[in-house]
Computed example of a mutant assay.
Amino acid sequence: MEQGRGRQGFKHAQKYPFNEDKNARHKASAKKFLSVQARQSRIKNRIRFCRHQTMETKIYINGKILPEGKAVVSVFDRGLNYGDGLFETIKTYNGKPAFLNDHLRRLKSGAAFIGIRPSLLKQFERDIKLKIIEKLLRENGLEKGSAYIKIIITRGVDKGGHAPVKGIKPTVIIFVKPLSAKKILLIQKKGVKAVLVKGVLPAMPELKTMNYLPSVLAKMEAVKRGVFEGIFVNKRGFITEGSSTNIFIFSKGVLKTPPSRETALPGVTRKIIIELAIKAGLKVRQCNITERYLFECGEAFLTNSISDVLPLIKVGSKTLGTGKPGAITRLMQEAYAREVAKRLDALFGGIKHQTSVA
């Protein structure tokens, strides 16, 4: 009898090695469940994206929501003729814009700097308070998942020359489009590569203006090299920013980023990361960063409002750190995800959001 039981036990052990039959089955079931969930999520995202591509997008323009075919601007608009305007890009989570107030503050500050009076933006501000962005997302079927918002303000229509004529009204445009949360999470986990771009620099890096040609050229160079981002190097040999990102390096126990204003755009995500890093007890320094400092750093990451925090693992032919996302980068990703969740919950309550790379 004992031998029989032993043989049965041996067969049982062969079927479920290490006597972990229940754990193995539970893990297999959980893996299968998560796999089914992932497939369903991918299918939903694909349907959502295809539906948005085939339907006529609704656009907010000067106080009205119109089909894209009717949402037109004059050929004399100064944004088209001179790049005379500003913009903001914002990420949404299930129909709710993240850090909206921070973006609006920067937009209004930029508008004041270039001479667009606050009184000329009263309708836009009123519509924002009436949740025009949430309405626009619903009308475009983007109230679920992640979406991209772009707000554009130009000085307006003007048939004159370089100097704007008096009395013109700004053109205000908001459009939305779907984002692939899966693709963003993938690059957040694996990290991205970049190339240094020299000889081209944003004219006014302290403002998010429509004069975006340097960034377009930097991104074109990145695409040509098969990498994610182009990082500007100024005439003094200092790293400034990416075509659409701010850059951080961690070296000798200090988190460093190029100074904003004259060197780099004061990014909303950049600002939040600096605050979170200080709160986490890290030393943070805004200082000039040379190519040598970049290549010798322990780790680096990029930030922007759409991709959040991206590990930077290689620049040109140089591997940064271990060539994998570092511990500080992961710390900042997790802290940023929690901050997004906290702020959305504080403003809207009960919002589900996929913000973590874990």
Rank of each mutant, 00 (worst) to 15 (best):
5 R>N: 14
8 Q>R: 14
9 G>Y: 10
9 G>P: 06
10 F>N: 11
16 Y>I: 08
19 N>Q: 12
26 H>S: 15
27 K>A: 15
32 K>T: 14
34 L>D: 14
47 I>V: 15
47 I>Y: 11
49 F>I: 11
51 R>P: 04
51 R>C: 10
52 H>E: 09
63 G>P: 09
68 E>R: 11
68 E>M: 12
69 G>K: 15
69 G>A: 15
74 S>C: 09
77 D>S: 08
79 G>Y: 04
79 G>H: 02
81 N>V: 13
85 G>I: 07
85 G>V: 06
85 G>T: 09
89 T>K: 05
89 T>Q: 08
92 T>C: 11
95 G>H: 08
98 A>K: 00
103 H>Y: 04
108 K>V: 07
118 P>E: 10
132 I>Q: 09
137 L>W: 05
139 E>N: 11
144 K>E: 15
144 K>C: 10
152 I>L: 10
156 G>C: 09
160 G>R: 10
164 P>S: 08
165 V>R: 15
165 V>T: 14
168 I>Q: 03
168 I>T: 06
169 K>S: 14
169 K>Y: 03
171 T>Q: 06
172 V>N: 04
175 F>S: 10
184 I>Q: 02
184 I>K: 06
186 L>N: 14
186 L>W: 10
189 K>C: 04
189 K>W: 00
190 K>D: 10
192 V>L: 01
194 A>E: 03
199 G>F: 07
203 A>N: 12
203 A>T: 15
205 P>A: 07
207 L>Y: 09
210 M>D: 07
211 N>R: 14
217 L>T: 09
219 K>S: 07
220 M>H: 12
220 M>D: 14
222 A>I: 04
233 V>T: 02
235 K>H: 13
237 G>Q: 06
242 G>D: 01
244 S>T: 10
246 N>F: 03
248 F>V: 05
249 I>T: 02
249 I>N: 00
260 S>Y: 11
260 S>F: 11
261 R>E: 15
263 T>I: 12
267 G>S: 08
268 V>Y: 00
268 V>P: 02
269 T>W: 00
271 K>L: 08
272 I>C: 04
276 L>D: 03
279 K>V: 05
294 L>S: 01
297 C>R: 00
297 C>Y: 00
299 E>Y: 00
302 L>W: 01
303 T>A: 06
309 V>D: 01
315 V>A: 02
319 T>Y: 02
322 T>D: 09
324 K>A: 04
331 L>C: 02
332 M>F: 02
337 A>H: 01
342 K>G: 06
344 L>F: 05
345 D>P: 07
357 V>A: 00
357 V>F: 03
